[in-house]
């Protein structure tokens, strides 16, 4: 049976993993380094994490080249799937990141500005390595979610569910869905958002934003119909280990790899 995936996420700034707190903090200078990405990746590899996601939150070109080194060093030491996102705007950017050792790339703002990038990248590299990242925030009506870009600063005209559906039609092979309302709160994933997107698309959905307790993982996998769960600080600060999460899910009968 296909296991539900448990995915630690690294926000990488200038080659260091930073604390995954709420949107906008990077610009406010409120970043806190939590460690070296390669060393942390090796630790998660040993713990039995199912995949790793690296999001490059550096704006500078130096940061970009550091990111390639980080990805290459990780891919050489961890024999597990690695998704890399942040600042990838062209097919050339994507190809370079795949050649550095990423197995999948996640596209966010660039895909919104130029949806054809999804189709072109999917055609060239295969849908399996094109992940659409969506940062979504619940609208005042409480029943729909708006897509934001630039790390959550800029609202778009896009509805999260409709955008996910369109991106998958264009060729995205997976959706990394972050609830901006829940990110950093530890109040639990946005179950309704996750369920709405998962029901709308044929591809796997990774739920992100809000994990704080073991029960949150189970809720979003069951009620949210997520294929995978992502968390950052919860793992980085040792609140839970990967085996603890898997043991808990296993006792509920959810398929996990051990």
């Amino acid at each position: 049976m296909l296991s539900r995936r448990i995915i630690p996420c690294f926000d990488v700034h200038n080659g260091k993993v930073t604390r995954g707190v709420q949107f906008g903090k990077a610009e406010a200078g409120e970043l806190k380094n939590v460690g070296d990405p390669v060393e942390m990746a090796k630790d998660y590899d040993a713990q039995g994490a199912d995949e790793l996601v690296f999001l490059d939150i550096t704006a500078s070109s130096e940061g970009r080249s550091i990111m390639h080194d980080v990805v290459a060093a990780t891919a050489e030491q961890c024999f597990m799937p690695l998704t890399v996102g942040g600042g990838l705007r062209t097919l050339t950017d994507i190809e370079a990141m795949l050649k550095s050792g990423a197995d999948k790339v996640s596209l966010n703002t660039a895909a919104i500005k130029n949806p054809k990038l999804i189709a072109d990248a999917s055609d060239r590299f295969g849908a399996q390595c094109i992940v659409l990242a969506i940062d979504a925030k619940r609208e005042p009506d409480g029943r729909s979610w708006r897509v934001y870009t630039h790390g959550g600063r800029h609202p778009t005209e896009l509805d999260a569910v409709a955008w996910a559906r369109r991106a998958v039609e264009l060729g995205a092979g997976e959706v990394l869905l972050t609830s901006m309302d829940r990110d950093g709160t530890r109040d639990g994933y946005d179950l309704a958002l996750t369920r709405a997107v998962s029901d709308a698309v044929s591809v796997p959905v990774i739920a992100s934003g809000g994990a704080g307790q073991l029960a949150h993982f189970a809720e979003v996998l069951e009620q949210g119909q997520a294929s995978a769960v992502l968390a950052a600080s919860l793992f980085h600060f040792g609140t839970f280990t990967i085996p603890q999460v898997k043991d808990f899910l296993g006792t509920l009968g959810l398929p996990v790899r051990r």
């Binding site: 997976e174 591809v203 959905v205 294929s227």
Partner: peptide
């Protein structure tokens, strides 16, 4: 309910 691609550990 079976998402495609078949992605993950099986």
């Amino acid at each position: 309910e079976f998402k495609i691609p078949h992605m993950g550990w099986n």
